[in-house]
Simulated assay, not measured.
Amino acid sequence: MSDDRERDAALARAVRLRVQGRAGAAREQLLELAERYPEDAAVAYQTAWAHDVLGLEAEAVPFYERALAHAGLSREDRHGAFLGLGSTYRVLARYEEAARTLRSGLEEFPDDPALNAFLAMALYNRGEGREAVGLLLKTLTVSSDDPGVRRYRRAIEHYADDLDAVEPGGG
């Protein structure tokens, strides 16, 4: 039991360091924790995040993968891990893996605007601009509180499915 309390306290200290802008120090502590607790999803997730903050995306990937492979993440952190891994794959030009990861995230978090936005970027990077724009338009219609978007929601959704559609008379 004291080992759990010790782990929790060490993890809290490391997260506090990252939040305070001391990601390098957080990373060092988190790497030690990750070595000590290799199957701990929360430790892996926080370790990935610290690497990402430092621009060490390639080093973040195995920790994100480990976080998603093991149980124990809160719903919020699991969402963050999908988003972090998908975004990191995209930054590393691993577009297929980015799209696959973000789609997996959307299976658990359907219609999530952030996951959809990053998926649209990955689709664009894969040369699938039409699908990317359609996805962004659909995401806009469900996530925007803008009165104009709300007013034209059905039209936007219609054109999102068929970007080349035109109305007779140019409308």
Rank of each mutant, 00 (worst) to 15 (best):
D40T: 00
A99C: 05
E107V: 02
A26I: 02
A122F: 01
E131M: 11
G86T: 05
L33E: 10
V91F: 09
E6Q: 10
R154Q: 12
E76S: 13
L56I: 00
H51Q: 05
R5K: 11
Y45G: 02
G171W: 13
T101D: 15
E107C: 07
Y152P: 05
E157A: 02
R16L: 09
V19N: 12
A81N: 06
D40R: 01
A48C: 03
Y124V: 00
R126E: 11
Y64F: 15
R94M: 00
V53Q: 07
G127D: 04
L31S: 04
V133L: 15
P62I: 06
F109I: 14
E96D: 12
D112E: 14
H158L: 13
L136G: 08
P110M: 02
L73Q: 02
F118K: 03
E96P: 01
R22L: 09
E157W: 01
G134L: 08
N116T: 08
L83E: 15
Y45P: 06
D52M: 08
F82S: 09
G80D: 14
E131N: 07
D146H: 15
S104R: 13
K138W: 04
R18L: 10
Q20H: 10
R94D: 02
L30E: 01
A10F: 01
Y159C: 07
R90N: 11
L106R: 01
R36T: 11
G24F: 03
L102R: 03
A60T: 06
A58C: 00
A26L: 07
D146S: 10
D8N: 04
V149H: 13
R36S: 11
Y152G: 06
T141W: 03
G134F: 06
R78C: 14
S104A: 15
